[in-house]
Design a protein around this nucleic acid. Structure first.
Lengths: 213, 213
DNA sequence: GCATTTTCGTACCCATCGTTACAATATTGG
DNA sequence: CCAATATTGTAACGATGGGTACGAAAATGC
């Protein structure tokens, strides 16, 4: 509102890109969880030192909350796009689960979803984290519900469940994919679960199952 | 094998019941997670002091692993019994999800499942925890699969999925109930998700849905 | 009763934690 | 070139972490 100033800020300029640093902070928390990651770890992961982190983002808790929000915004925007771009509900779900599995097993093994792998332990004592977790879950539910409602409106036959209920089942599959990925499950096993869920949620009108695998 | 000695052990006797203490340890870890719970917290929760905990159970990591195992053994044995005691697959799933929701929202708010709420953050760096998490997930899958296979053998019509795939969906619902409970979801919302899953997995032969709610 | 064995409770050790003070440095505005 | 402003890097602070040494206490075996 106050006109995002293109004028260079006064004082010594930053030597880092806050968004990129936040991504590295997210990765560090992703690996070790909130309590298991020290400010020193974050400094090492980002390349800058403790006081700079405090100056730019606040304390450790604020750092974590911002990482949660950035992750949610990025993944759910990407998820919505994947769902919308697919021509049918079946392919939409297949594409989204495939992308989720890639994210959950990327790079190093056993990553899972950042939010549902690291937020739950804090959520019981920390009401802010709990709220972020709830917002993330609600976002997932709404993301799926919108696409399922569209499928119904377009006359696609799917499950007998109303869109909001089917959407929650789809979110549940994501939750499970995350836990299982974090437990070290193979991509093969994760894809099998996803495919079962697709078969249950998006039964093709005539053929029971789509073509092979 | 070596005859569980009824003879009283030598030396000063313990002033606590190890099983009961382990239950209190579990509760403490449940609230705060592994990294978020200190030995001091455990001492406070159990009423005994640090050295006694070390003497009886080992270090903090061993304490946590034993808590995971005790929780898994207890909950999965109870779960199997609930599933077996129910006359139909539908009531079996309803009873089990109801018990899970009670466990996940008992006492204080937002507890969730002990294992899937606290193990994931550690599972990436700690291969022992990761293995425990995998064993727990496998146990859930097998628990459901046995009951679903029985239903099929008894001629119950259920989902079109093979028993192992349907079982994994059921486990996924438990994973999701846990995350959502930890996020502060109401019992009402959790029961709605459970009911949707039951409707999907155990479609009654004639009636689409069972009687009210 | 006395040696032996095990637990209990206090006190302590060192490492690491999150956070901050402060001086040096680099930029803008005039 | 100088005041003002913001970031950087070093160094330190107090608190708390996991883990343990050691003497007192309470039981058994003889």
């Amino acid at each position: 509102m106050s006109g995002n100033s293109p004028s260079p800020r006064r004082g010594r300029p930053r030597t880092f890109d806050p968004h990129e640093v936040m991504q590295q902070v997210q990765d560090a928390f992703w690996k070790g969880g909130f309590e298991g990651t020290s400010i020193g770890d974050l400094a090492g992961a980002t390349g800058l030192n403790r006081p700079s982190l405090y100056g730019a983002f606040g304390d450790k808790h604020a750092l974590y909350i911002q990482a949660l929000q950035q992750y949610r915004d990025a993944t759910q925007a990407a998820g919505r796009k994947i769902l919308e771009d697919a021509p049918t509900l079946r392919t939409a779900l297949e594409d989204l689960f495939r992308a989720a599995i890639r994210l959950y097993t990327d790079d190093e093994e056993a990553r899972g979803c950042f939010v549902s792998s690291t937020a739950p332990p804090e959520a019981m004592r920390d009401t802010t984290v709990r709220r972020e977790l709830a917002v993330t879950n609600d976002g997932l539910d709404e993301m799926f519900e919108a696409r399922i409602a569209r499928a119904q409106a377009e006359g696609e036959a799917c499950t007998g469940l109303p869109p909001d209920e089917a959407a929650r089942i789809a979110s549940a599959v994501l939750h499970s994919l995350s836990v299982r990925a974090r437990a070290g499950a193979s991509r093969r096993a994760l894809h099998a679960l996803a495919q079962s869920a697709v078969d249950l949620l998006a039964q093709a009108p005539e053929t029971g199952r789509s073509e092979g695998r």
